[in-house]
Design a protein around this nucleic acid. Structure first.
Lengths: 152, 152
DNA sequence: AATTAGTGGTTGCACATGTAACCATCCATT
DNA sequence: AATGGATGGTTACATGTGCAACCACTAATT
């Protein structure tokens, strides 16, 4: 394990490679947050995201969830199924177009959602505080740039 | 899908939630890069990372790979196996401690590594250019802050 | 009205992954 | 030397995931 004596142009230092660093940082944060809602509610990542999206929009279809927060449609399908099983989500068929299923939170789901929102806000706040407000602003600006870049 | 009329404190807008945004941005970038080396070499993500780490250090053990670029040890074990199968990596048992296996690139592996480094550097350059050098600097600063936060 | 193409959503299958248990070896204590 | 605990690495099993094929339905074309 001798990185030093090969510090030339032929070597790529992973810990300095920007895409890798971005990925690691994001993964660390996501894992920490996932740990929170897994412990509290036993939700998986796709379940949490599906849940959060339904909560955000009130009524929405699976397809729209895929579009809004990029996930494979089978992931959403399975997440909806499991959320339905725990009675946090209910579906109603569209009478106009019987392919569509409108998803919404049950009242139990809404209660859980409110709680979850608080947890999320708290987590975000802690995160921002822990890296420092200034750096958090820089992060936001950088994220704007990246998102802009991936629109086209 | 009516986000507008519920724009109050009770709702969490996923697309503004910092951990989510960070995760999405990182995932987009990683996917784009993964697409590159998958097409070129047919490597999976854990394989690429394992390969890159061995190339960086010259000689290294599986355990050390896990420590340097956080991956589950079974992932590394399997990645090493498949890299060995394609004759990019060879292992030699440590004579002092026969549990240890020292991993290094074969000469074929080294050739591929050099090529891969160029591809990676090019990708990073394109990425930085596409979001703009200024914003890339902000990103670096923010990443430093996040990494610092996750050391303790 | 019949045929075709497209869309929302689910499912079967193959493959990737994490957990736990495991094997071989080393190290510390006795 | 013998025993018990730790460590590097692999493997069996259960679970998660993506792809492709599918079903039910709608929309467009004839």
């Amino acid at each position: 394990m001798d990185d030093q004596n090969k510090q030339n142009a032929e070597i790529l230092a992973l810990e300095n490679f920007l895409p890798y660093r971005l990925n690691q940082a994001a993964e660390k944060v996501s894992q920490k947050f996932a740990q929170e809602y897994k412990k509290r509610y036993g939700l998986t990542r796709p379940e949490w995201r599906t849940f959060a999206t339904i909560g955000q929009f009130g009524v929405i279809t699976a397809r729209e969830i895929c579009n809004h927060s990029p996930m494979h449609k089978t992931k959403v399908s399975r997440a909806v199924f499991s959320l339905e099983k725990r009675r946090w989500v209910k579906r109603t068929q569209d009478p106009e177009d019987r392919r569509l299923e409108h998803l919404e939170l049950t009242s139990v789901g809404q209660t859980a959602y409110k709680d979850m929102v608080n947890v999320a806000r708290q987590f975000e706040k802690n995160f921002i505080d822990s890296i420092g407000g200034e750096d958090a602003k820089l992060l936001l600006t950088a994220l704007n740039a990246i998102e802009r870049r991936f629109e086209g």
